[in-house]
Design a protein around this nucleic acid. Structure first.
Lengths: 393, 393
DNA sequence: GTGAAAGCGCTAACAT
DNA sequence: ATGTTAGCGCTTTCAC
């Protein structure tokens, strides 16, 4: 019965060769080698050692049964005697046993973890998506690992690698505003890891996608402005590499066309999704020799910047300038005047994306076809678009 | 007793993994791999199986070197021949090799992962803390695992277990609004995992804490209201189990006392951090027979609810009602009138908490003393507290 | 119903 | 400079 010279324990000792004629030992817990000090009655049973988390082996030894039995008892395997199971469970909680997921995942090659890559989570949109996604995931027994790319492709690539290294079972992605090369996403496919893109989707990679009907949302927003009497409607759009920018722009153009309004290039500006630049772009529109009488903005954060700028300059919204956003950010119904916006089912987007992803995870790669889900939008009319002064309708 | 299929010898045979469920062998002499010819007509010999990600062994075999050499080359171990390293690196990328962190973490007993438990991330506060924390963590080579307790103790306990099972190296915690029993946090200590509480800290657990000077922030806010001429100042406070509610309440009380104003119990209400209830509590104050002429609110979300309610009822802010919040949520400078608030260094809180945590992680439990860091606050005066009508000052 | 042993992919102490 | 070996903590055949 050899005791470790450091942690005073017995169970983790193995022999480890003979040096100078004396038996050497190794304590697996403390990871140290030692020989027995000639004649030393070491008492001190105090629990001083480095914190060693209990393993199934500790439980097994304490109960004088085998590892496998403990493992099976813990998993609720059915052919384990009831009293054995009870004993194991009791000992597990006595030893404060916590299963080591790393080990379990390693042997099962399944982590029950889903990775999520989002560009940011300062605005209302992504946190809300994540909450929805997390709800579905945890109900199914999965945990999520959230990565922010911070709108940087380099970080996005790093995230990709981190998730791969962590062997997540599936990934939810919304790209950065600057992602134009998609090679770093392909690695998931090569490793058999299903991917679902949402909101800022990637069209060149064969995979599932969840987004809202951006075209229709934009169309209805612009049509609404026209119906309210605005005639010189600008568009504060987003970066061209994002499909949603394109779709919203198309909705804008088509609505103008449909109502016989000219499409004027100088009324279309694009910002890179940085709030400061939304402000700058809005300024460019407001500085135009012939100012627009309304702006349809890519999203609410942009619309809010435009609104604040207009207020600063004493431009009356909606009298001198109609404004419509996209997303229904909570701020929109707080700001004065309340902002008309295209509501999208943000939480649902997260839920649905996660549902699709989990299905594919469980089916296994190659056993499913990618799904493309378009969610509906809904125009929420508030004060910021109630019509130009002198054009009540 | 396995014989090489080529040289018929026994001595140079080693096992070499299992492929398609069949034991593979390797003859060191002949340097060939083989399985025992069996009477089993294995169906698909093609590489159809579930995608098998390359391992260091695959690289080793492809290059005819040993696993350890590959491992060392990949780690940048210095006594590896340059050309070997180059070959390994090249082969790694040819095989699309991705290290398996699970395995690495298992053997190193270190995951380079930090867990973060926050009650929510819908409001500005927690996302901002997380961004700060993540910045520090990733600079130090750590990834973070974010859990939301959703203000539910049950979920918080589940998060605790999940992080433990994932063997995170350290944990950052801000408790739920309802956490009153702290036993579930102690498990980290028992397992040698350092914990740093931030914002909503736990006083009964020996561990590091990072928070702002709530008392002083509250004091200065209330003093400011008094100086502006408000006299019947109410407090819309938070749940009593949160230390920060207590501290802000004390700051409020002491400021009144210092200026010879009576402390009136009916002017103190507490809400449970749900926005709807902030509104309800604000209504209770506004419905008082003798209405307060100002409210110091626990945080900005509460102040915003109060402000919206006041506007709905035609109560002029700041003329009939002064309002001060806490946090400097971006909405505060968007809402009309702009909200006076106590700014706290939110991003810094995340950074500092993470810095302290990482130091403790690297030192190892027992080799450091818990740190308590109090961050300064700063009153940002805006329109919502500019003084009651007829009391300019 | 339970145990023995192999092995998931990797690192590191110990040879050589 | 590289190979050998023994695990990390767990699940999972395959025996008995």
């Amino acid at each position: 019965m050899i005791r470790c010279i450091k942690c005073e324990q017995v169970h983790a000792i193995t022999k480890s060769g003979v040096v100078h004629g004396r038996q050497r030992y190794y304590c697996k817990d403390c990871r140290i080698y030692f020989s027995l000090p000639e004649s030393d009655p070491s008492p001190s049973p105090s629990h001083t050692g480095p914190h060693h988390s209990a393993t199934i082996l500790d439980i097994a030894r304490a109960l004088n049964i085998s590892k496998s039995t403990v493992s099976r008892a813990l998993q609720g395997h059915k052919d384990i005697k009831e009293e054995t199971r009870a004993a194991v469970l009791e000992m597990a909680s006595r030893l404060d046993y916590q299963p080591n997921l790393l080990a379990k995942s390693l042997v099962r090659s399944k982590t029950f973890t889903i990775g999520i890559i989002v560009p940011e989570f300062m605005n209302y949109f992504f946190p809300t998506v994540i909450i929805g996604a997390q709800e579905i995931a945890s109900a199914a027994g999965y945990t999520v690992m959230i990565c922010q790319s911070q709108e940087s492709v380099a970080t996005e690539i790093a995230n990709t690698r981190a998730l791969l290294a962590s062997r997540v079972d599936g990934v939810l992605i919304s790209m950065t505003r600057e992602t134009e090369d998609f090679d770093h996403f392909r690695v998931f496919g090569r490793h058999g890891i299903p991917v679902v893109f949402f909101n800022r989707v990637c069209e060149t990679i064969e995979s599932s996608r969840v987004y809202v009907n951006d075209y229709e949302g934009a169309f209805s927003a612009v049509e609404h402005l026209i119906e309210k009497g605005y005639r010189r409607i600008a568009h504060l759009g987003g970066p061209p590499n994002l499909q949603l920018s394109q779709n919203r722009l198309n909705g804008y153009s088509d609505a103008l066309k449909r109502h016989g309004l000219p499409l004027q290039p100088e009324l279309i500006v694009r910002y890179d999704l940085q709030p400061e630049n939304a402000r700058l772009c809005a300024a460019r529109l407001l500085d135009l020799p012939q100012r627009p009488d309304a702006i349809f903005c890519l999203n609410d954060p942009a619309a809010i910047q435009a609104l604040l700028l207009a207020k600063e300059r004493g431009i009356n919204v909606p009298g001198d300038l109609g404004l419509v956003g996209f997303s229904d950010d909570p701020i929109s119904s707080i700001i004065d005047p309340h902002l008309t916006t295209v509501r999208q089912p943000v939480g649902d987007m997260g839920k649905i994306a996660m549902q699709i992803l989990l299905e594919q995870v469980e089916k296994g790669i190659g056993n499913y076809v990618p799904e493309h889900k378009t969610l509906p939008t809904h125009l929420v009319v508030r004060e910021s678009s109630s019509g130009p002064t002198g054009h009540p309708r």
